[in-house]
Amino acid sequence: MDLGPYLLLAILEGAVMASVLALTAVGLSLVFGVMRVVNIAHGEFFMLGAVLAWYVTQMVGGPPSLGFGVALVVAPLIVGAIAVAADMTVLKRLDYDPERTIVATIGLLYIIQQLTLMGYGPEARPVEPPFNTRLALPWFEVRDGALALYWPWGLSTTSYKLAVIGAGIAVLLGVWAMMARSQMGLVMRAVQADRDMALAFGIPVERVYAMVFGLGAALAALAAVLIVPISQAHYLMGADPLLLAFTVVIIGGLGSLPGTVVAAILIGLSDGIISVFFSPTLAKILATLLVALVLVFRPQGLFGVRSA
């Protein structure tokens, strides 16, 4: 295969990763932006989403699309509810203090992870995709002075991977519309801008916090449900998404949703391209290097606002 088809393949793989990463990182960024809480347990909410997707598909049975469809709704809802409970029982009691909540969410990380190990076990388990048609992709070449399409051997993707990219875009657009156009988004942005003034204008800040923490976790869980038919559900699978989500959020700018999405696309695509042409390890090294450079030269991130 020539370079061009390889590049298309790498971009498609990168787009799948970018889509899932953007959902996960937007959840993390939302929680930090509104609540000023650095949620170290975010990766575990991702893992719980995948594990619950496995449980739900096993319980529902029937055709894979039925179980997967139910998991797509139920897993984020359950994970969101668990996060709301964690917010009300742990973070609220710490008065959302930035330092103490870091320690508390480290504790949550281990509790969720070890409880999952006890209940679900150490095995990695697959979830069947709802559909998975292999789609051959065309490329073009110049033949007799004109462009002509051809079908290179091995240049293909699956309908499910394209659906993941589409679903990621649709959910991100939904989050953007919610933040920019809805009353709930207005309230969340007011709380983000000034917690005390939000209280002074009748906004129940603690209720907003609980909702945001639940929404952030639900987005991570949704990302996991989408990716679990491509990877597998495992109790230790939360570490990588957490690190990558932090990478994305730091590059994009803590609390900046547009920055998070742009950084997710940047990291996802570069990871896909570098992994295909070189190695996945080099992709991770370069992403980490980029974080270091951003922290040195633009600590507020690409889209963040430098605090006074």
Binding site: L186, R189, A190, A193, M197, A198
Partner: peptide, 12 residues
């Protein structure tokens, strides 16, 4: 509320 418009501040 920084980041919100005049209209949105009044809406709050």
């Amino acid at each position: 509320f920084a980041g919100l418009t005049v209209a949105q501040n009044l809406e709050i």
